[in-house]
Design a protein around this nucleic acid. Structure first.
Lengths: 152, 152
DNA sequence: GTATTTGCAAAGACTTTGCATTTGA
DNA sequence: TCAAATGCAAAGTCTTTGCAAATAC
């Protein structure tokens, strides 16, 4: 499904580096969340992660998940997108940036990357004298399968 | 600042039409919110609108504002964007679709329209067999003024 | 008159925070 | 050892909902 460019151990190494850099301490929970996102490869809500965590160890807490996801996002290990009003979903930060097509029928998320789009954005921002920090592009659409199902 | 393509009365007419079409009844509050967004021309939060409403009549309620904004958005009179995690902001739906550059420093919102961008999105969606319903593109950047201020 | 809208208060959903306890360097 | 991370519960936001009173057609 999704290419895994970097293996989990390598990510853990980067994580430990990042933790040390910030003068923090490692924890099972941080590694667990990173692992879950890595292995799932998709987009999980904090609640989804909690459920998976509860299977693995008792006492997993939603607040820690929020805190950890906040840290992981700040450090660039994960990205979040807002699929709908039910809250954010997180995915592991793979090597390549990408944007999302979200099916308004089935909720499926299709990832895409367009060099043209990135360049165009750069051009637009420059035209307004602004310096891009990041962007967020969501295309809401009816996916191939749902379109087919509707045309029966 | 912002061009007003359609005058307020014309918008009211469309509103009444829309209300009748849905078998509903007109109300001062609906017209008020539309007017506020029209005259402000910018991006207002429900709370912003509430404050303005409180100046105009006692007993303005936040729940009505949410309800009305929901209706107005469904009917295409207003659009919403999520600037940050503090919630949605609403603007009057002008004639032309546009996207937003959001300054991460001062919060300023710059509107832009790019035909190329629209076409590119269409192409990307088509490439995935998806039919675009809408899109939402936000570029987070440091605006010209903030960049200048920082380079002192 | 009667169905829709409103205002108010209460409830919901998602997220954050305070604090005692546990854990890692 | 001792600061950082966790779990739990409580509190915070933004938003929605239930319901009686007001309003429009």
């Amino acid at each position: 499904m999704k290419q895994k460019k970097e293996n989990l151990d390598a990510i853990y190494d980067r994580l430990r580096l990042s933790i040390r850099k910030n003068g923090l301490k490692n924890s099972k929970q941080r590694e667990f969340i990173l692992k879950v996102l890595y292995e799932n490869g998709g987009h999980l809500s904090p609640e989804d992660i909690l459920m998976l965590a509860k299977d693995s160890y008792r006492g997993a807490s939603i607040s820690s998940i929020y805190r950890i996801l906040g840290f992981l996002e700040k450090e660039g290990f994960v990205h979040s997108i807002e699929i709908d009003k039910s809250g954010k979903k997180y995915e592991i930060a793979g090597g390549t940036h990408h944007d999302h097509i979200i099916c308004v029928d089935c909720g499926k998320i299709i990832e895409f990357y367009s060099k043209e789009m990135e360049e165009l954005q750069e051009k637009i921002a420059k035209g307004h004298g602004a310096k891009i920090i990041s962007h967020d592009m969501r295309i809401f659409a009816v996916c191939k399968e749902c379109a087919k199902a509707q045309n029966l």
